[in-house]
């Protein structure tokens, strides 16, 4: 079992495409019937690699013509573009097209990628690697902060050869509660949750832990 403490693997940086490359992406996307409209003159296109895919990468379009700026992120192999719409389906679609290269080292980045792009009815899921670095910790009362520290269970990764799946024991924040759970990641990337236990309730993040905090309207 790998114990993962407060260490977070460095995310690859976003790489901005030049106008010619960006134009090609916009042209490819424009051929789709369900394509969202982006301004050609004011849309930045950037990409970054994902350690667990060999062919697919992330492509981010940011339209600066609107206020606030409008951003959509796609999974792409350079030909097909799958919009990340906040549900699990787009990621599972890419998983089918480009079989995952999961290892004990990159299964956690895969889960964090998944959680940062998929929401449930109660909002975002956030995996806590280090309680001392939990988002918005300062906004909680002393008692709550103490509760977080006391209830935190370190992340542990194991491979269950019998099921052919990774099992990640972790502390998660979801829907205003802190809980422990086992996250099961099958080799095909499908995720499920087992052994969920409530650790602490009334822990509400004032904003998105992923930094999406625009108020619409």
């Amino acid at each position: 079992m790998i114990a993962v403490e407060g260490v977070k693997m460095a995310q690859p940086q976003w790489i901005r495409m030049n106008r010619e490359q960006a134009g090609r992406v916009l042209n490819q996307l424009s051929s789709r019937d369900d394509a969202l409209v982006f301004s050609r003159d004011a849309t930045e296109v950037a990409w970054r690699s994902l350690a667990f895919f060999s062919n697919y990468r992330l492509c981010r379009l940011t339209n600066y013509a609107t206020m606030p700026t409008f951003t959509m992120t796609y999974l792409t192999d350079g030909t097909e573009y799958i919009a990340l719409d906040g549900t699990a389906n787009p990621i599972y679609t890419a998983d089918e097209k480009d079989p995952l290269l999961l290892t004990e080292e990159n299964v956690l980045p895969y889960i964090e990628f998944f959680f940062s792009h998929v929401q449930g009815s109660e909002g975002e899921v956030f995996l806590i690697r280090d309680p001392g670095k939990m988002p918005f910790l300062d906004s909680f009362t002393d008692a709550q902060q103490q509760g977080v520290m006391q209830n935190f269970k370190p992340v542990g990764v194991t491979f269950d050869a019998h099921r052919g799946a990774y099992r990640i024991e972790a502390t998660l924040h979801y829907g205003g509660v802190l809980m422990s759970a086992a996250i099961i990641v099958m080799k095909d990337g499908k995720i499920s949750f087992e052994d969920q236990h409530l650790l602490l309730s009334g822990i509400h993040f004032p904003d998105s832990p992923y930094g999406r905090n625009w108020i619409e309207g």
Binding site: T87, A88, N89, V118, Q119, G120, S121, E122, V125, L172, Y174, G175, G176, V177, M179, A181, I191, S192, F193, Q196, H197, L198
Partner: peptide
């Protein structure tokens, strides 16, 4: 675990 915070609801299609 309250049903509203069952993590598996994240996986609904």
């Amino acid at each position: 675990m309250p049903a509203s915070t069952d993590l598996n609801d994240v996986l609904q299609p």
